[in-house]
Design a protein around this nucleic acid. Sequence first.
RNA 1: GCUUCGA
Length: 234
Amino acid sequence: AHTWSAIISAHAKLGKAETALHLYHKMMVLGSKSDKYVFLAVLKACSTLSHVKLIHDHIIQSGLQSIVMIGNAMIDLYAKLSSLEEARAVFDKLLNRDAVSCNTMIAACTQYGKLFQALDCFKKMQGDGIEPDDVTFSSILIACSTVGAMKKGRLIHHQIVERDLQLLVNVGTALADMYGKCGSLIDLLDAFRSLPYRDIVSWGALIAGCVQCGKPHLAMKYFQEMQGEGFTPN
RNA sequence: GCUUCGA
């Protein structure tokens, strides 16, 4: 199974989804048993709901549905290909939820523009003794930015600083993004300057944020500066 | 060989 999962996931990562699914089919025909890594690899190759449902059935038949990593992948896929309700159904049934489960659910709520549900999930995970991590905070910030909730974003910002998580690029960039989308140029620049390093994504958040804040000339200035630091615009 | 976030 480990050699099958390696080759299936390699194809899935390279975007060769059909080939990955064919290999999975071949593996079954040859009578090899799937383990959790095979399922994770083949789930990555699923681009339609019907594929996901089919694999989900196989997972249930194998009795592997209660494995956290599998459940987490299912939450993500149902959110992206089906509906928030279906994602939540998997989330609710999962008994050994971890931070990734909650992060995935929060990102799912965000995708559907449900800030209140995202915040509720954030609150409940802490009630359940699951520690929020950097991914949790970056996801919650994106939820705030998509609905322009700067006041809530600031409260989250304080919790981030308490843990020094603003020093991580993903969190720092999400902060910059949130302030930019909410129109606070000062806070946007402050978040950007606190980043441990800059990459193409953080530059993008800065430039888009300047535009959002009504400062197109500043955006142009940073666009030049970005190229001066060797980044090619994407 | 392994799931979630900043585009």
